[in-house]
């Protein structure tokens, strides 16, 4: 692998992003660059603001301070409507899928293409069928989201997010709550999407297996800041106490019990 300096220009650049939710300061000045074509894994404690960070990258949340650059635009300066065209280049997989209840599985997956327009009904159905086959849910078009298990919802949501082939894909805990086999298939799918379609991916997870397998680089979010960014090998073998504890799942709970 070439050295980081010679790699592509950043597609997303966060500069000093701060965000307060209620009284809690979730992000305290996040600086992070995501390069074109890379798969960036963000790890960190639950409730540590990883999802919030992800939502800033796509403009679903606006920072209280700092800048969020997507290509040459600062998302923090744009209105909701000005963000709409930029979002045509991005896709996001939500934690629980966030499928539209009022649409069938097939219509959910077809949604981005229908919105884009310029595609015949026949081609659309073929694309949906293909996408569902890729996420290993063939012939489920006519089911409703409420009839699916959590894992299936997530895979449908992945199909929906990826079907329009966005330049940037954001995954919010893509493998949480899935069995190891399905997790592995999702990991492989994320890698393939990245490689075959040249997608840039940002993956928020606390699944270390997934982080090791998928990530080109891993960033650790700790106490509202990016604590370290490096290649998976370096991060996962780090001797730094905070990183080491997180990566190996060592709690600092006291010995006392109830």
């Amino acid at each position: 692998m070439s050295s980081p300096e010679t790699q592509a220009a950043p597609l997303v650049r966060l500069v000093g992003v701060e965000k307060k939710l209620g009284r809690q300061k979730v992000l305290r000045g996040v600086d992070l660059e995501i390069r074109e074509g890379e798969r960036m894994v963000i790890i960190g404690r639950s409730g540590g603001g990883k999802s919030v960070l992800l939502k800033h990258i796509i403009g679903l949340m606006q920072p209280d301070a700092g800048q969020v650059w997507f290509r040459d635009k600062d998302l923090a300066q744009l209105s909701e409507e000005e963000l709409v065209p930029l979002r045509k280049e991005t896709g996001m997989l939500f934690q629980n899928g966030a499928l539209f209840d009022s649409l069938s599985v097939g219509e959910n997956v077809a949604f981005p293409l229908r919105e884009k327009g310029g595609i015949s009904e026949h081609d659309l159905q073929a694309e949906v069928e293909r996408a569902l086959k890729i996420v290993d849910l063939p012939r489920q078009e006519h089911k409703w989201p409420s009839e699916l298990s959590g894992g299936m919802r997530k895979r449908v949501a992945l199909a929906r997010a990826a079907i329009a082939k966005p330049a940037l894909m954001l995954y919010d805990e893509p493998t949480s709550g899935l069995d190891p086999v399905v997790s592995d298939s999702i990991n492989k799918l994320m890698i393939r999407l990245g490689e075959e379609l040249k997608m840039t991916s940002v993956i928020v997870t606390h699944d270390m297996v997934s982080a090791r397998e998928v990530g080109d680089r891993i960033a650790m979010l700790h106490e509202g800041r990016i604590y370290c960014v490096d290649e998976p090998k370096v991060v996962l073998e780090s001797k730094d106490p905070i990183v080491h504890r997180f990566v190996n799942g060592i709690s600092d709970a006291s010995d006392a019990i109830f």
Binding site: R87, F94, L99, R160
Partner: peptide
């Protein structure tokens, strides 16, 4: 609360 409105926004729909 189920993030469907965020999903709509993420899919470039106002």
């Amino acid at each position: 609360i189920t993030e469907q409105i965020d999903a709509l926004r993420a899919l470039a729909v106002y």
